[in-house]
Design a protein around this nucleic acid. Sequence first.
DNA 1: CCTTGACCTTCCTGTGACTGGAAGGCTTAT
DNA 2: ATAAGCCTTCCAGTCACAGGAAGGTCAAGG
Lengths: 133, 133
Amino acid sequence: MNIGDVAKHAGLPAKTIRYYEDIGLIEPDRSANGYRDFSDSDLHKLRFLGHARSLGFSIEDCRGLLALYKDKDRASADVKHIAEEHLAKIDAKIAELQAMRHTLAHLVKACAGDDRPDCPILTDLATARSDTS
Amino acid sequence: MNIGDVAKHAGLPAKTIRYYEDIGLIEPDRSANGYRDFSDSDLHKLRFLGHARSLGFSIEDCRGLLALYKDKDRASADVKHIAEEHLAKIDAKIAELQAMRHTLAHLVKACAGDDRPDCPILTDLATARSDTS
DNA sequence: CCTTGACCTTCCTGTGACTGGAAGGCTTAT
DNA sequence: ATAAGCCTTCCAGTCACAGGAAGGTCAAGG
């Protein structure tokens, strides 16, 4: 299978697939003409990577997950550990964004949004003690 | 004021302040010895930038906000517009993370996390149709 | 046989917003 | 004279790719 076909089937851009080879996540064969020749197993891995990445796992997480996936004797605890750490990061990120959202929503609400130059958003940014409640 | 002092007062790393000069957000004077010499106005701008960045505004947003801040005749609507667009981006990001969180939390919950190799997280990543409810 | 277009290849650069570090100059105190 | 603690510039690295240039390969049509 050439890279274009595998890209369609895996739902990933060809650029991304080449990049994954560069960093050693996959190792497709080469045809006589120098084209990459992907096996079903490669396609499988790429799909795996696509799913993991879409859940926000980092490339290094993915490398670990792939290794665990390949290792039929792994303990499920090892996988769960990676997933839980990632979940904690997601939660932290959500909390951070919600704090931003809270402050910013206040400011937006307080701003008239008309032709006058008076703007609480700017005055707050200029003075804020990060307390806008 | 030298960069170290202004960094302390603005709560930003000196590196970041040099970077902000590089990209034209601030233009501090120079002393005879070549050191940057920050005015109160520079410090004020840096604090403004720090607050805006901590709310997640991009550098280009900050550039626009600074220009509006300087322009005493701006319409508050212009500021509000930038803030609302940013708010929408934050909301989109939160929604995306919550979708990830939802799926991942399901998987983590389903995984025994013991010594056995059986792991629904991996099997799901390998097959997922992005429907894990 | 030749050309056209759609593939494929490698290599280099750019992204955002910095961070780290090297190599060297200035200032103040000992 | 030297040591420390500032400051300077410049270069490289981060993360996960994306864009594009220059060129090779393949299948179809004239």
